[in-house]
Computed example of a mutant assay.
Amino acid sequence: MSFVTRAAAALAIIAASSAVPAFADNKDLKVGAIYMDAQGFYAGVRKGIQSGAADAGRKLDVIETNAQGDVSKESSFIDSLISAGVQAIIVSPVSADGSYRAIRRAHDAGIPVVCYNTCLNDQDMKDYVSAYAVGDPYDFGHKLGDAAGDYFLAEKKDAPKIAVLNCEFVEVCVTRRKGFEDALKKKVPGAQIVANQEGAILDKAVSVASTMLSANPDIDAFFGEAGGATLGAARAVKSQGRVGKTVVFGGDMTTEIAQELADFTVIKAVVDISGQGLGKLALAQAVKAIDGKAPADIKVPYDIDLYKSSEDGKAWLAAHADGIP
Rank of each mutant, 00 (worst) to 15 (best):
S2E: 12
A12S: 15
A12F: 12
I14Y: 11
P21Q: 10
N26C: 10
K27V: 04
D28F: 06
D28K: 11
A33K: 00
D37F: 13
Q39I: 10
Q39D: 14
Q39W: 11
Y42F: 15
G48F: 06
G48A: 05
S51C: 02
G52K: 06
K59E: 04
N66C: 01
S75C: 05
I78Y: 02
S80V: 01
S80K: 12
S80H: 03
S83A: 15
S83I: 09
V86S: 00
V91M: 04
S92P: 06
P93F: 07
V94M: 03
R101T: 15
A102N: 10
R104T: 10
A106P: 04
D108T: 02
C119I: 01
N121M: 12
V129S: 04
A133V: 06
G135Q: 01
F140S: 03
G141D: 02
H142S: 13
H142F: 15
D146A: 12
G149D: 03
D150E: 14
F152N: 08
L153S: 08
P160H: 08
L165R: 05
G179F: 05
K185S: 13
K186S: 09
V188W: 02
P189R: 04
Q192M: 12
Q197V: 05
L202E: 12
A205R: 11
S207K: 09
A209W: 10
S210L: 07
P217D: 08
F222K: 03
G224T: 04
G224N: 05
A226Y: 12
G232P: 08
A234Y: 08
A236H: 05
G244W: 03
T246M: 11
F249P: 04
D252H: 02
I257S: 08
E260M: 08
L261Q: 01
L261E: 02
F264E: 11
V266E: 08
V270T: 02
D272M: 02
Q276F: 02
G277K: 07
L281M: 13
L283Q: 01
V287Q: 11
V287D: 12
A289G: 07
A289L: 10
I290V: 15
G292V: 08
K293V: 01
A296G: 11
Y302T: 14
D305N: 13
K308N: 10
K314P: 02
L317W: 10
P325A: 14
